[in-house]
Design a protein around this nucleic acid. Structure first.
Length: 478
RNA sequence: GGCCCCAUCGUCUAACGGUCAGGACACCACUCUUUCAAGGUGGUAAUACGGGUUCGAUUCCCGUUGGGGUCACCA
C-alpha cells in the first residue's frame, strides 16, 4: 500500500553550520527512510530572515552530501510556503480555535513582569480573547497591529514517543502561542505543523530539545483536523564537559572534521553509534550492516558525550583498511594546502604506505609524508626534545656513527634490508644497543619518537636526503 | 522557578527479573620487534542514593539527589 510508506524529513535552519547533532539527526532520518523503503525529504527552515543565509544553506547541503546522506525530495524552502502557513493560521481563527491579540510586545513584557517571580511559567491571561466582536472590529479598523494567538485547549496532550515511550503534558500548563505575527508572517510551530501536514510526514525524527514543542504542535494538528505523525525524539550530543555542544568545545561542525582529515564513512559510523546501538557488540559497521540493524527502538534515551578520541580511533580503523592508492588524492590535497612539493601523485604512494598504519587522520598522514619529503617540515616534539636532552653529546655521536656506516652503502643498496644489516653490524662492532643507534635517527629525520621501523624510514626518505639530514642534525646539536 | 526528559566503568554502550554485569575507546602491563610505534594478549574500572514489589532486582514502582531540555511576535 503506497500510502503506508514512511515519509521523514530533516529540517535544519540555515542559521549556522551543520553541527554533529544535526548531522546525526539527519543520519537517523536517512537510515530509517532507506531501511523502510520510505521517502527522505529535506526542508530548509529559513523563515528567520535575520539569521538565515544562503551560505549556511550551502554548507549544510555540502555536509549532508559529504556524509553520503542523499535525499529524495527537496531541498524545499519553508520561506516559499508562507501563504499556506498564513492560510492555516487564519483557518484556525475562522474556526474559533484562535483569536486576535492586540497586546504589544511592550505590554506583554509589562504583564510578564507584573505576573513574574510568581514561580509558575508566565502564561498569557487571554485578555484579548475576552474582547467583544465589536471591540475587535473597531480596533482592526483603527489599524491596531495584532497577532493571531492559538487558544490552547485545557486537555491532556500525550503521545507514544518511539524512543521515550509515553510522554504526557497538560494543556493547562501550556501558553496560548502566537501562530501569526503582526506582520502576518508565521511562527515556527505553525510553519512546521503546516509543512509536515502538507508534506504528509509520517515520522518526525528530531532532537530531544523539541519535546516541549511537541504538545503545542499536537494541539495544532488536532485543531487542524490532521493525522498526528509518530514522534521520535533522539537525545542531544554533549561536549566533553557534559554541557550542550557549542563553539567553545572546539570542532563541532561536520566541516571541521572533514578538515581534520576524518573520512566520511568513519564519521557516519561514529555518529550512528552516538545514541544508537546495533547490539552484539558491533562497532565498525558498513552501510549495509547499519541499514540491516537500524531501528528507532534501538535509540538511547540519554544524551551522549562526543568523544573525539574514539572518533579518531575509528577513523584510523577505516584508514588502515583502505588501500594506500585511495589515499593519494586526499593526502595530495592536504599537501597542497601546506605548500609542500611532491612532484607527481604516484610519488606519494610509498610514503603513504609507510605512515598509514600509524595515522588516525588524513591530516596525520599528510604531515608525516611532508616530513619525509621535506626536511623543513621537521618539528621536534616534546618527547623528541626530551630524548635529545637525555642523550646529550651521545645524540650527535650516535648520529655521526650511523651516518658513517650508512654512507658506505651505495645507492643501489639503499633499501630496508641492507640498511638494517649495516646498522646491526655497526652496533655489533661498537658494542651498543640497536635502539641507541636507531632512535636518534628517527628523531633527527622526523622530529618524533614514533615512526615506521627506522630502516624503512631511511629507505623511504632516500640516500642523499637521509645522509644530508643526519649530518646536518649532528652538526646542529654537536 | 513551572513543565518535561534522563541516570550501567572516565567516555560510547550490552543486559529487555536469575550473567563472575559483556564489548569498544582511553589507560596500565605483557608480547612481537637486537628500534619507537602499529598489531596481538591480559588487566584496572560501573549499575547515583533510599525505600518498596518479588524466592530473586541494572531491569518494575515510589521518593531523593544530580544532570539536561524548554518556557519569545527565534528556529
Amino acid at each position: 500500500m503506497i500510502n503506508t510508506l514512511p515519509r521523514v524529513r530533516f529540517a535544519p535552519s540555515p542559521t549556522g553550520y551543520l553541527h554533529v547533532g544535526g548531522a546525526r539527526t539527519a543520519l537517523f532520518n536517512w537510515l530509517f527512510a532507506r531501511k523502510t523503503g520510505g521517502v527522505f525529504l529535506l526542508r530548509i527552515e529559513d523563515t528567520d530572515a535575520q539569521r538565515s543565509t544562503d551560505e549556511h544553506t550551502q554548507v549544510i547541503l555540502d555536509g549532508l552530501k559529504w556524509l553520503g546522506l542523499d535525499w529524495d525530495v527537496g531541498p524545499v524552502f519553508q520561506g516559499a510556503e508562507v501563504e499556506r502557513h498564513r492560510a492555516d493560521a487564519e483557518r484556525l481563527l475562522a474556526d474559533g480555535k484562535a483569536y486576535r491579540c492586540f497586546c504589544t510586545k511592550e505590554e506583554l513584557e509589562a504583564q510578564r513582569k507584573a505576573a513574574g517571580s510568581g514561580g509558575d511559567a508566565f502564561k498569557y491571561d487571554r485578555r484579548c480573547d475576552r474582547l467583544s466582536a465589536e471591540e475587535v472590529k473597531a480596533r482592526i479598523e483603527s489599524g491596531a497591529p495584532n497577532v493571531i494567538r492559538f487558544r490552547m485547549p485545557d486537555e491532556e496532550i500525550a503521545w507514544d514517543d518511539a524512543v521515550h515511550s509515553r510522554i504526557v503534558f497538560q494543556g493547562k500548563d501550556l501558553d496560548d502561542l502566537v501562530i501569526l505575527r503582526s506582520d502576518r508572517t508565521p511562527i515556527y510551530n505553525m510553519a512546521v505543523v503546516s509543512d509536515d501536514i502538507a508534506m504528509r510526514i509520517t515520522h518526525v525524527i528530531r532532537g530531544d530539545d523539541h519535546i516541549s514543542n511537541t504538545p503545542k504542535q499536537i494541539a495544532l494538528y488536532r485543531a487542524l483536523g490532521a493525522p498526528i505523525p509518530i514522534f521520535a525524539h533522539v537525545p542531544m550530543i554533549l561536549g566533553a564537559d557534559g554541557k550542550k555542544l557549542s563553539k567553545r568545545h572546539g570542532a563541532t561542525a561536520v566541516g571541521d572534521y572533514r578538515n581534520l582529515g576524518i573520512l566520511p564513512a568513519a564519521m557516519r559510523n561514529f555518529l550512528a553509534l552516538m545514541g544508537w546501538s546495533p547490539g552484539e557488540d558491533r562497532e565498525i559497521l558498513s552501510e549495509e550492516e547499519m541499514l540491516a540493524l537500524f531501528s528507532l527502538e534501538g535509540i538511547q534515551k540519554k544524551p551522549a558525550v562526543f568523544d573525539t578520541t574514539k572518533l579518531e580511533w575509528m577513523n584510523g580503523q577505516y584508514l588502515s583498511r583502505l588501500p594506500a592508492q585511495d589515499l593519494v588524492e586526499p593526502v595530495a590535497r592536504e599537501l597542497d594546502r601546506m605548500s609542500v612539493n611532491y612532484g607527481a601523485l604516484h610519488v606519494l604512494l610509498p610514503y603513504i604506505e609507510a605512515v598509514k598504519a600509524r595515522s588516525r587522520t588524513i591530516l596525520d598522514i599528510a604531515r608525516q609524508v611532508a616530513v619525509r619529503l621535506d626536511s623543513r617540515q621537521v618539528e621536534y616534539d616534546e618527547k623528541a626534545r626530551k630524548l635529545m636532552d637525555k642523550m646529550g653529546a651521545d645524540y650527535a655521536k650516535s648520529l655521526t656513527a650511523a651516518t658513517g656506516t650508512l654512507r658506505a652503502l651505495e645507492e643501489s643498496e639503499w633499501s630496508a634490508e641492507p640498511i638494517l644489516e649495516a646498522l646491526k653490524a655497526r652496533v655489533e662492532s661498537d658494542g651498543m644497543k640497536l635502539g641507541d643507534l636507531l632512535q636518534p635517527i628517527r628523531v633527527a629525520l622526523t622530529g618524533s619518537t614514533v615512526s615506521e621501523p627506522v630502516n624503512e624510514l631511511l629507505a623511504v626518505v632516500g640516500r642523499s636526503s637521509s645522509l644530508a639530514r643526519l649530518t646536518a642534525a649532528a652538526e646542529r646539536s654537536g
